[in-house]
């Protein structure tokens, strides 16, 4: 082909076997985040459903229950808040929960086909690829969370000060990392969860409902002490509370510790599980089984 002459670089020569550089790491992570965001933007349906789901809760569920929430001032609130305001942090965490599980579980579906294989033949270490994938998922969840906050703003669900939108960012990143890492760990460990409907039933719903997302913990304690204990230990509760306090420029230290600790544990588990030498991917029934 005469075109070969014009090709500026002969393709076999210029990149000999090399050790990856720090700049290369950044390029790699940047590329993964870029692609994930691009896909997200292209998939309008996904964007809409990610936005509509919490808004349905906000507009319909919360509107119906606004008067029935017990009136009591709990930190970080300094006065009485509408139920919409109360559940907004929980709905943001729900966005991140869905997003984290969705993007991680897509790795299960993609394991033998598509994007996953291309990702994993990258020369960068497997742990780094997983972390990048996680970061990409968090970036997308941030887009969703802020889109939700923007709509909520016009529904008069607002933090005390506009600074809240900034102070909530670190909390959103942390909770996004935790929920994404949890999804990653689950995607590698539980084979049965390859069906999203069962993930809904066995993970998302229990985590969401047995948390402080919909009711304050003191209310749950009054209703059922056992449930209250479950809620208090549920990492999702702490993701919600971390976000809730951060929206008001405050740090809930217990939640910060739980979210960081649980997130790190999930990430380590996922890295272990995806490691080609130690992990579970190779023992999972061969490529033919996956087809």
């Amino acid at each position: 082909m005469s075109l070969v002459d014009r090709a500026p670089a002969p393709l076999s020569e210029p990149l000999p076997a090399r050790d990856v550089t720090f700049g290369g790491y950044l390029v790699c992570m940047g590329g993964i985040v870029w692609r994930e965001s691009l896909r997200f933007v292209h998939q309008r349906g996904r964007f809409l459903s990610a936005l509509v789901r919490p808004l349905v809760w906000l507009f319909i569920f919360a509107a119906g229950f606004r008067a029935t929430l017990g009136v009591s001032i709990i930190p970080p609130y300094e006065t009485y808040v509408l139920y919409e305001v109360y559940i907004a942090p929980g709905l943001i965490a729900m966005i991140q929960l869905f997003n984290g599980l969705q993007s991680s579980l897509s790795m299960v579906y993609d394991r033998e086909v598509g994007a996953m294989r291309i990702l994993l033949v990258s020369p960068y270490p497997r742990w780094f690829l997983l972390v990048s994938k996680l970061v990409a998922g968090v970036a997308v969840s941030l887009l969703q969370a802020y889109a939700f906050l923007a709509v909520a703003y016009f529904w008069e669900v607002q933090p005390d000060s506009l600074w809240g939108y900034l102070t909530v960012l670190p909390a959103l990143i942390l909770s996004g990392l935790m929920l994404g890492a949890m999804g990653l760990a689950m995607s590698s460990i539980f084979k049965q969860l390859e069906n999203f409907a069962s993930v809904m039933n066995f993970v998302i719903f229990p985590m969401f409902f047995a948390s402080s997302a919909l009711y304050p913990l003191w209310r749950i304690q009054q209703a059922n002490v056992l449930l209250w204990h479950i809620c208090s230990y549920n990492p999702f509760t702490h993701a919600v509370e971390l976000i809730r306090f951060a929206l008001y420029g405050q740090v809930e230290w217990t939640s910060l510790a739980v979210v960081s600790g649980f997130g790190a544990a999930c990430l380590l588990a996922a890295i272990y599980a995806y490691d080609p030498s130690a992990g579970l991917t190779g023992r999972r029934g061969g490529p033919d089984a996956a087809k």
Binding site: V71, I73, E78, T79, Y80, D160
Partner: peptide, 18 residues
């Protein structure tokens, strides 16, 4: 009934504290 006073910021029409 809740034994408190609420403070409204008149400019922004927001309840800031009780």
């Amino acid at each position: 009934n809740s034994n408190d006073i609420s403070i409204v910021d008149v400019a922004s029409d927001k309840v800031t504290k009780s």
